[in-house]
């Protein structure tokens, strides 16, 4: 048991949540972070989907790591991810149709997500299945965390709602001169918010600052 949660394994899980966050430090998965963060709900769905897929893809690649020919390793990783995502979507279509309809937008985004390829290449190819599983979970959740923070600001100030529930669209607020910011709904604002998060993180964490 102690081996399962050794210091190294714990780090594999905890580091991506903060110090080695896939979005703000490794700068992976930026494109999807811009695409799905206009509202909170898709951000959460996307975050969870990526977490599940990256964890299991990490385990599979980690089990295969000693057999994969190094020259076609990226192809193998891509095939594993694409197969996994397709299988999940086929099964959902047959047994949980409503969920599969909601997720259909994300299928393509998951397969091409840089975090998956990044983690498979950087971690699963060198580490055992259990450590890789934790690394996948950690990175997925680290990604979800950033997505949710960005989506919170974009939905609140862009549409005046959270999870589609009205927060700011009241007459008294409008009379006070407040207006929803249309720029928040657009992708460039996601990049600016992301920049602010990275700025904040680097200002607080000495070890992330270059000399």
């Amino acid at each position: 048991m102690s081996e399962l949660f050794s210091k190294k394994n714990k780090e594999a899980f905890v580091n991506p949540l903060g110090l080695n966050n896939p979005v703000t430090v490794q700068v992976l998965g930026i494109c999807s972070a811009l695409a799905v963060t206009a509202e909170l709900k898709p951000a959460i769905v996307m975050g969870l989907s990526v977490t599940i897929i990256v964890a299991f893809a990490n385990v599979i690649i980690s089990l295969l790591r000693n057999t994969i020919p190094s020259r076609i390793r990226i192809v193998v990783q891509l095939v594993v991810v694409a197969t996994l995502v397709t299988l999940v979507s086929e099964i959902l279509k047959a047994f949980a149709y409503d969920i599969s309809v909601q997720l259909s937008v994300y299928i393509g985004l998951i397969i091409t997500n840089c975090i998956l390829m990044g983690r498979l290449e950087a971690f699963a190819m060198q580490n055992g299945p259990w450590a890789s599983f934790l690394d996948g979970l950690g990175n997925g959740l680290g990604y979800a965390k950033i997505l949710i923070i960005v989506a919170f600001f974009r939905e609140l100030f862009g549409a005046g709602t959270l999870f589609g529930i009205n927060i700011l669209n009241y007459e008294c607020i409008e009379k006070a001169g407040y207006q929803n910011n249309g720029l928040m709904v657009l992708a460039p604002m996601a990049l600016i918010i992301l920049g602010c998060i990275i700025w904040w993180q680097r200002a607080h964490r000495k070890e992330l600052q270059e000399k």
């Binding site: 799905v36 963060t37 939905e155 549409a159």
Partner: peptide, 10 residues
């Protein structure tokens, strides 16, 4: 829709 942008076209 199949794949319009969530939060915008969707």
């Amino acid at each position: 829709h199949d794949s319009e942008t969530p939060g915008l076209g969707a």
